[in-house]
Each structure stands twice: as C-alpha cells, then as structure tokens.
Write a protein that binds this DNA or RNA. Structure first.
Lengths: 339, 339
DNA sequence: CTGTTAGCGCTTTCAC
DNA sequence: GTGAAAGCGCTAACAG
C-alpha cells in the first residue's frame, strides 16, 4: 500500500510538494509536476480516503436518508437515490445510503461522527422528524421535498401548484371545461405524504379559479377501471383528465377508458402531473409535467455542496418541470352543441 | 467538536483507557468505566469516523455496486440495496452506493482509496466486468448472483435450478403432467442476465427428466394475455404454470386466464419461481419460491464481514427459498379420462 | 487494570 | 517555487 512519502522519495521532492501537486492549491513548476506525476503513475499511488478526511476535515461523503414506508414505491426511491448519487459524483462526492429505521438515527450518526460532510433528505413527509433533526445537527442538509415546517431548512422540490395550473391551462386552451383528477389511493392521504395533498389542493383551487367543472377520484385497486367509472359518473361531461397517480394505475388508464367506450385522446385528453419517468423504460403515452429526479436532485446536490464548501443558504426552491407534449390533448368536442 | 483527549481529561484517565472502554478490547474496572462513560455522556462525545478509520485501518464502510441497465428494475435494485444496507448496519457497517457508470470505476476507487472495507456486487451479469475487477483488487467482494466465470469469487444466490425442480415436483405431486413456463421478454435474454437463462434451462431439463409435457413462453407486452394465448395454443392440455416473469406481467396473469375461460386455480395451477416480494405490498396470490433479498443479502453480508475480519472464503453458496403455500396448486383434472 | 507513546497517511501552516 | 514539521483524532503496541 503506497503512501505519499514513498511518492515523495521516488520523485525526490517533499511530501508537501506531492500533496500540492495533487490538490493544485499552490503553484508547482512544470518540471516538478512532471516528476511527481511520473512517480505517482509508476508507484500507482492513490491517496487514502481516511487520512485525507482526517487531515482535511472533510470526508467527501454525502449521506442520503431515505426511509421506507409501506406506501413508498421502491422504484421511485431508487431513482432519486441514483440521481443524487450521480450528481454527487459529479462533484467528487460519494453517497452513503441510510434506509429504513436507520434513516433518522443514521442521519444523526453520520453527522456526529463526521462520517458525511452533508445530508440529502429524501421521501420527505409533511411532519418529518428529520426536519427538527436537521436544525439540531451541525452537518448541512438539503431536503428534496418540503415538510410542513420548513423554517431554517434548505428544500428543493417541483412546483406542483404551478404544474397543476399549467396542465389545466393547456386543457382550457384546447377548449376543455370539465376536468377530472386521478389521484392516489385515499389511504395514502392518511399518512400525509405531502405532495399528493398539494396536488389535490392546487387542482381544487385552480379549477375554481378557472371556472371549470372538476372532480377528484382515487383508485381503489391497482388499476384505473374503478376510478374511471367513478369519474364518468361524477362528471358526465368530462373531456379531460389530469393523472397524478401510481405508474401501475396510469398504465391501465387507456384500457380503462376504452372499455367504457371512451377513446383516448379523441374523447378524453390526458395530462400527467408529478409522475416519475423511469430511464430506459417506455414512458407513459401522455402529455406530462413530470416529477423528474433529474430535475431536482442535481439542484439539491449543488446547494448541499455549496453549503459544505462554506456558502450560506436556506429556503425553499421550487422548480417547474417542462411540459412534454406527446399530442395527447385533443380539442374538446362540444357535445352540448350537438345534443 | 469534542475529542477523545478532552474526555480523558474530564474523566481523569488516559486516552487509551477511553479508547478501550469504547472498544472493549481490554478489561476496564467497573469504577473507571463508569467515570469514563459519565464523561462521554457529559461532553457528548462521539469518535470521529475518519480518525478511527485511519488509525484502525478500517473504514466501517461497505460499498454496494449496482449498475443500472435498461432492463434493470429499479424496484428490485432498491430492495436489494436496502437489504444489504440493513444487514450491514447489523454488523456496524454503513453502505456506500455505487451506481450507473460508476459501478465499475467506483468499485476500483473505493478499494484503492480504502474508502470501503469490502464490496457487495449486485445485479450480476453473466459476463460481468466486475468479476475480473474483484479478482484484481485488494478489497474482499461478495457477489449476489453468479457470473459465468466465478472462479476465485465469493458468490451468493438463490438455487434456481433446485427451485424449479421443487416447483415441478409440487405440481407433479398434484397430478399435473403438462406444465408451462412464463418467462421474461425474449429481449432480456440477449443481454444475458444470467438467472433467467438458468431458470429456462432448469425447466427444460427437469420437465424432460420427469417426463412432463412442457413449453416456455415469453411475454411480448407488459401483460400476460398474449403469452397466455400462446401457451394455450402450444400446449392444449396444459394444467399448470410456473411463472418467473416481471411483477406487472404476473399481476395480470389471473385476468389473462379468466379471459380465456380458464379458472385459476381450479383449471390452472400456478407457482411462481424467483419473483421478488415487495415489503408492505400485497404479495402475488400464488404459491411461490421467491427470490427474496432478505434471504441472500444477509448471508452475503455475513460472508463479506467475515472476510473483512480475516476469514478466507470463496466459492458459490446457493440458497434454497422456502415454498410459500397459498393453496394455488389444485389437483389436476384428468381430462383424458373424461373425454 | 491503566498509562505512555508511536504511529495511521495525509493537509496545511510557517519558513525559506 | 519548495521544504520541514506540526497536527488531524484516534488505535494499539509496549511498558508497567
């Protein structure tokens, strides 16, 4: 196991010169640099993480806390953890995974032992214990999601309110006046996972503001059929739907409407809001305002790294997704005019 | 930031005494221990990970390398990563997540920088670059899955061959003589993800050995309907099915058969093999021999920790899942006798 | 049973 | 532009 002093000896320089050649924190003459780099290559030297961390008081590790609830979709989980990891690597950091019951305790531990330089908080609930903890510990933390009490916290999230508004405006522009919202199973709201509630609220207030007819339905099974039936009963003149639900339910949406004699998109325009795309998988065949981890995670990591490196910041950053137009919003048919 | 020497001073002992009370690596008198522990509590001391790692030449971190292919299910990924993490915590280790293109390079890096004490290799492919790498580096590694060339490697996996045999034997015991295998999409085999191939092979050889009529079908969409149709055409007398496919396809299985007038389980007995259960989610309503991360991950981590702590081991450990009997295997109806 | 001390392998002043 | 040396905060001989 080769150390920095062996490199120094091999290159005929002092160890500080080797260190500075690596860190570029002070000028090194071209000739010296060359000698050092050659020695490094020759000996196959790589600085040890622990020694570096101890001396520099920085571990180069970011902890990712991701608890696992009954209604947590493991796919979504992984997609976020992955994007955080990719973004962290781009800054030279590695990520430590804190899951399950260790999501809270591990956050405490990684801070007090200085295992991690900072923390990314995933799957944030409305009342999240990690919010208080983040305020109490030394390590900087950035939340992906917004807890009810976000004071003194740095949070990054999709601007769901704005996304719902934009989706509705797209529909209104195409002449739709009666719009449904297909949400998550009702049970999910009891645990209050925050963003689903925000979407329903935004839908309610925006349909009202725009003078639209609206109805919210929740799936009762793993397919959309029952909810679609309910929607058609509740809102007989419905011509458009915003879907913000699970992937499984969304995938059965077209079939569910077809079974009821409703053709998508001609009879039913669909826009999804806040649905998570899976890389390498066939995307949902609907216009969308996605909740893409690739949008929020890099921003969150940027903020965290900035804080680690001394910047001060806090507050909530809401990011607006870009509208993916797949042509699944059709001109509304004015049924009344015909009937 | 309180250090060990402040604790020593506060307790009126030497720092080694503090260190040893913590590590329990040598006896400490009850009285001294009490004084030290009081001081630790009073000052709220927690040893710094980096200092500890440098001095002990052990980081307390296990790297988890999990590349992400187009056909990698993010759910499965997370479930394995989680179980590895939980198992690692039980031994006092934390886990570092290596994903994507960094799965290979990160493995190299975490070893050469001594960032991690050992490595768990997930989502192992038949020809996996990480196999050679594992042989080349210093850090011990344990594979969850078995690459084609497993020489000098430590691998843990489910014994799929045995599971297929057991499933078939259960079916034979219930009188079935004509059995189908619902596998993965045919495209998956081009990338050769190993275990799917092993299951098909085992199915072929075991049906032959048992003198059964057998047929393998692959889904062509995200539902089972097309494959079921194909199966009924290929094997008109089929009375049982082994399903080893994606969760989505499996969930539509009962509906697919029902649509063809085949009742599950009375007309069609189903056993799943190698399917991954999601904690907190309603399990598939079939008898099963699951690929449970809770089975393989703890064993893999145990082996890795043993190697880290000095034990020598290598070779392939195949674990047999226990048969989950949900009563979905019915007595075969002897159609011939009636016809 | 406890204390002294020499490192672990780097980073970073301070000095030239 | 480079070197010497003092740590960083712990662990683990070695010594008693």
């Amino acid at each position: 196991m080769v150390t920095i002093s062996e490199v120094a000896r091999e290159a005929g320089v002092s160890i500080s010169t080797v260190s500075y050649t690596l860190s570029r924190k002070r000028p090194i003459s071209a000739e010296t640099r060359e000698r050092v780099e050659a020695a490094i290559k020759r000996l196959n030297f790589v600085p040890k993480a622990s020694a570096r961390a101890l001396a520099a008081r920085r571990s180069g590790i970011i902890a990712v806390t991701a608890p696992f609830h009954a209604d947590t979709d493991p796919s979504d989980h992984m997609l976020f953890a992955m994007q955080v990891t990719v973004a962290a690597r781009a800054h030279g950091y590695d990520t430590l995974l804190l899951v399950d019951d260790d999501a809270l305790e591990g956050m405490q531990r990684s801070s007090s032992t200085a295992l991690a330089d900072g923390i990314i908080v995933l799957d944030v609930a409305a009342h999240d214990q990690r919010a208080e903890l983040a305020r109490a510990i030394d390590s900087p933390a950035v939340f992906i999601g917004v807890p009810d009490d976000a004071s003194d916290l740095t949070c990054v999230d999709v601007d769901f309110e704005n996304a719902v508004r934009e989706a509705l405006e797209q529909l209104v522009a195409a002449g739709h006046r009666s719009v449904g919202l297909l949400s998550h199973p009702i049970e999910l709201f009891e645990r209050d996972s925050g963003y689903a509630t925000r979407i329903v609220r935004a839908f309610t207030s925006e349909t009202e503001r725009l003078g639209l007819e609206g109805a919210v339905v929740h799936p009762t099974t793993e397919r959309a059929h029952e909810a679609v039936t309910e929607l058609l009963a509740k809102l007989p003149g419905v011509t458009a739907l915003i879907a913000s639900t699970s992937m499984t339910v969304a995938r059965s949406l077209t079939a569910a409407f077809t079974e009821r004699g409703v053709h998508v998109p001609d009879d039913m325009s669909i826009v999804t809001v806040g649905m998570i795309p899976v890389p390498g998988r066939k995307p949902l065949p609907f216009n969308s305002l996605p909740l893409d981890p690739k949008l929020t995670c890099p921003v969150a990591v940027d903020l965290l790294v900035a804080e680690i490196e001394g910047a001060e910041s806090s507050g909530v950053r809401l990011l607006s997704p870009t509208y993916q137009d797949l042509g699944t919003v059709a001109q509304a048919r004015v049924l009344e005019a015909l009937g």
